[in-house]
Amino acid sequence: MTENKGSKILVFSTEKISDPAIDLAGLLKMHYPPTVYTINIPCSSAVKSRWIMHAFNKGFDGVFIAADGTDCAFDESCTDNTAKVISRTHELMKEKGIEPARLKMAAICSVCAEPFVKQMKSFAEYLSKS
């Protein structure tokens, strides 16, 4: 299904912080693989492992959490909580025989367009190799 089209990446972005950064990337005409799809949620620590696993099951090659980091408007525990979700999901992925590296997280601030593009490029490259 994904042959020759590049690896499909699902990005969970957050409405206030990382989604504006992804918008900004487009605004600045920065390019990243067109197989990157974004779903936005209020806060990165709200991502359920179940959604991530669903994405893998349905055929996504990688999932990327564009986290709020310390800029989170809700609470500073966001970074920790998001990290915990990731590590729990990594466990689930191992059980299912999915390579944990296919789930990544990085803090993307609201103007971090360039870091986001870099993340996407390197992630896509990594996924296409593995």
Binding site: K16, P20, C109, V111
Partner: peptide
């Protein structure tokens, strides 16, 4: 706090 100025201003 090192939060990004834009993240606070733009909202």
């Amino acid at each position: 706090t090192l939060d990004c100025a834009a993240c606070i201003t733009t909202p």
